[in-house]
Nucleic acid binder design. Structure first.
Lengths: 117, 117
DNA sequence: TCTCTTTATCGTAATATCACGATCATGAAC
DNA sequence: GTTCATGATCGTGATATTACGATAAAGAGA
């Protein structure tokens, strides 16, 4: 990373970027995946959904819709975001869809948080 | 939470919302704070900033600007988001601003992640 | 004081997100 | 097959986010 207008057109700062004091092995795809999970969680309603699924594993979309103050279509969108980020998994049960946390990805998220900070 | 159009106008679902299998003590202000921290982290550039500050504690804004492919004003905005979410703290060093992780809040975030899932 | 460096803030355009109702697709029950 | 329940998707408007350049504020040094 190093191409913008400001510093490219000016002389280097008196004090250049200091040496790193340590390293952090979160890069590329892992980083994208982590950021995407954070982004998905960074919405009050989606967090509420995740919380609900944590305490009500295997619930169907309708249960979640009943629990939230938003329309069915909006809820479905939020579920899609959580699904695509890897937080939850949906399985078809007849005409309904049953949702659970994606335990493996949740575990991965926790491990990254532990690793990072 | 229970006021939308769909389920309010229809008869209750055949299977009501099942009983919770467990509880989760993240509510109100704590929840808002956590979601806000997730949201702040859910942007690739802001995550990059946080990573940079982790490996380069005490850096000034200019160092971060040099490290990112975006304009100084945009970087400053992202720093403000991270500050307001509690991820970082800035201290004035003459005309510059030196940034560090807010260790206490970082610790709090980790503990919540550990508690939640 | 005047200038330079540094960074925050302002104004704004482009894009993304969020919310809704309406529609479509699918499986179950009759 | 027809109907109903369920939930995903489409089209849309409203709002929020992200990016930029320009400007302002404030300390350091001549």
């Amino acid at each position: 990373m190093a191409n913008k207008t400001r510093s490219a057109a000016k002389k280097p700062a008196l004090t250049g970027i200091p040496e790193p004091c340590c390293t952090l092995d979160v890069e590329g795809e892992r980083q994208e995946r982590f950021v995407s999970m954070c982004k998905a969680l960074g919405n009050p309603l989606r967090f509420e959904i995740l919380k609900f699924l944590l305490t009500h594993p295997g619930c169907i979309t309708g249960n979640i819709v009943d629990h939230l103050p938003i329309a069915q279509s909006t809820t479905s969108q939020h579920l899609a975001v959580l699904r695509e980020a890897g937080w939850i998994q949906g399985t078809f049960e007849g005409p309904a869809t049953s949702y659970c946390l994606d335990d493996e990805n949740v575990k991965w998220f926790k491990s990254i948080v532990g690793e990072i900070f």
